[in-house]
């Protein structure tokens, strides 16, 4: 058993319960009484967390979305797909590990799964480049989308990235072009595409996997044109105004839903997805199943026309 680290806004209310649980979990030989205490404390923590999580600010949600114990693409693949076979490389230059892609079976149906992959420790973070793809990642994704198209397999994408990697090589090898190409090509893929924002929807780097027929967002995930830190350092000239920037950007799921960008908000367990990965994955699986049912009934022509229409109607003006 492990207890996820507390975020700053949780410490005051959950701190002591958290500390007690940590000790009990670590205890080598637990007695019947210890299990009972653990159960009791866990219930108490969950209900206290539920109160805190009922009303989170946009900045707090950003913190939850970035929590190091939050379920990642690989966790969802493990929990809700069968027979996953990872596919590597863009056939042009490299295999970008910050995008995890492969074939799998979902509720008996063959599908293609593509998602940003983050790491949980230093070694993994280097391996997955903090979930920040280079152009090769987007090209690998597009290769898989075309494979899905060829074999009539629906596509499921998981969105969880701080953004596309801002590197010298990334620019030289056409980061902008790779993202743009995905945005354009995804409008021609003749199979249902379902995207789930599971953590950070960081700008163009997130969008390049999200041109989907249905987009779902986890309750505490965020999706934005720019990170609160970056926005603050540009508009406030000081990155420490990240809280204010997050509120101004309104990077939460509710806002994306209000503007018709997101089709549904997937409820997380009280206290955030990281407190119960299994249950969160179950909810995600249900949302995918529901979307697949609706989308599979549509003709290719309808599917493609509605995908364009979905994005064509996004925008607010006088």
């Amino acid at each position: 058993m492990e207890v996820p680290i507390l975020l700053d806004f949780e410490k005051k209310k959950l701190g002591s319960l958290h500390a007690k649980l940590k000790i009990l979990y670590a205890k080598r030989e637990k007695r019947e009484k210890d299990y009972q205490t653990i159960k009791k404390l866990e219930t108490k923590l969950q209900s206290k967390a539920a109160v805190i999580y009922k009303k989170l600010s946009c900045w707090q949600r950003t913190q939850v979305a970035r929590h190091s114990s939050r379920p990642y693409t690989s966790d969802y693949i493990q929990h809700i797909f069968k027979d996953f076979i990872e596919i590597h490389g863009d056939r042009l230059y490299k295999d970008d590990r910050s995008i995890l892609a492969g074939l799998a079976v979902f509720n008996g149906r063959s599908v293609v799964v593509v998602g940003h992959q983050k790491g949980r420790n230093t070694q993994e973070n280097i391996e997955f480049n903090f979930g920040m793809p280079n152009p090769e990642g987007y090209r690998k994704a597009l290769r898989l989308f075309k494979l899905a198209d060829k074999f009539s397999m629906p596509i499921i994408t998981f969105i969880d990235t701080p953004g596309a990697y801002p590197g010298i090589g990334a620019e030289k090898r056409g980061q902008a072009s790779a993202i743009a190409t995905n945005l354009q090509q995804m409008f021609s893929i003749k199979v249902p595409i379902i995207a789930i924002v599971i953590g950070e929807g960081g700008s163009g780097g997130a969008l390049a996997l999200s041109v989907a027929d249905h987009i779902h967002m986890l309750e505490n995930s965020v999706y934005s044109v720019i990170s609160p830190e970056s926005c603050a350092s540009i508009l406030w000239r000081d990155a420490s105004y990240k809280k204010e920037a997050a509120e101004a950007l309104k990077n939460d799921a509710k806002t994306a839903f209000r503007f018709g960008i997101v089709d549904s908000i997937i409820e997380e367990v009280p206290g955030g997805a990281h407190r119960d990965s299994m249950l969160t994955a179950k909810h995600v699986g249900e949302a995918i199943e529901k979307s697949l049912k609706t989308l599979s009934r549509k003709s290719v022509a309808t599917l493609l026309a509605e995908r364009i229409e979905k994005f064509a109607k996004v925008g607010e003006f006088l």
């Binding site: 354009q184 990077n251 960008i261 996004v314 607010e316």
Partner: peptide, 25 residues
Amino acid sequence: GARMHEGILSLMQMAKTSAGTSMLS
């Protein structure tokens, strides 16, 4: 680039204009 002041709506204009290029094609 995309305009910060309109948040996610600006981000989505990238997809929208790309949809336009797909229609041109």
